[in-house]
Amino acid sequence: MGINATNDLGRYLGVPLLHQGKNGNAFNFVVEKIQGKLARWKTKLLSRIGRLILVKVAVTPIVDYYMQCHALPIKVCNAIDKTIRDFLWEFMEEKRKLHMVNW
């Protein structure tokens, strides 16, 4: 009949309509969105309290939005958690700092 099959139906409200189930690759866009939002902020100009407030106000609603419909895999939750920890404690690849509190 000439109808082509597709594996990608696009997104609806930011969530892919077809996803690969519970594997971590299907929800990597959530981690990338959070990393992009945190990368725009200058951590050197903010105190720890300022960074904490920014994470609570701007990053956690992103995660909450996607978790309303889907349970995110543990791998994605750990990646989000690590991204937030690194932002809070000013972690940089060239200068390693210890996290002062056990997460």
Rank of each mutant, 00 (worst) to 15 (best):
C69F: 13
V31Y: 00
N23K: 11
W103P: 05
K44W: 14
C69L: 12
V63G: 01
K75L: 04
V15C: 10
C77Q: 07
N7P: 11
E90H: 10
A71T: 13
Q35F: 02
W103E: 11
Y66F: 03
N28H: 05
T83S: 15
K33C: 08
R48V: 14
H70W: 13
G10E: 06
K82H: 07
M100P: 04
G50D: 13
K42I: 10
L38K: 00
A71I: 11
G21H: 09
V59Q: 00
W41C: 14
F87Y: 07
M92F: 06
K56P: 02
D81M: 12
A79H: 02
I74Q: 13
I34C: 02
F29R: 01
C69A: 11
F29P: 00
L45C: 07
W89D: 01
V15L: 12
D86V: 05
Y12F: 15
N78G: 05
V59M: 01
R40Q: 13
V31L: 02
Q20D: 09
A58R: 03
E90Q: 09
G14A: 02
E32A: 05
R48L: 14
L9Y: 13
T83W: 01
F91W: 13
I3M: 07
V55R: 01
M92I: 06
Y66E: 03
N28Q: 08
F91S: 06
G24I: 05
T6P: 02
V55A: 08
A39E: 14
V76G: 00
T43P: 02
I3Q: 07
H99M: 05
T83L: 03
S47N: 13
K75C: 05
K95L: 12
L45T: 11
L38Q: 02
W41R: 14
R11D: 12
Q68H: 14
N4T: 10
R96A: 15
C77R: 00
K44Q: 14
N78E: 11
E93R: 04
K42M: 09
V63R: 00
V55L: 06
K75R: 05
I80T: 00
G14Y: 09
L88K: 03
L17D: 05
D8H: 08
K42L: 12
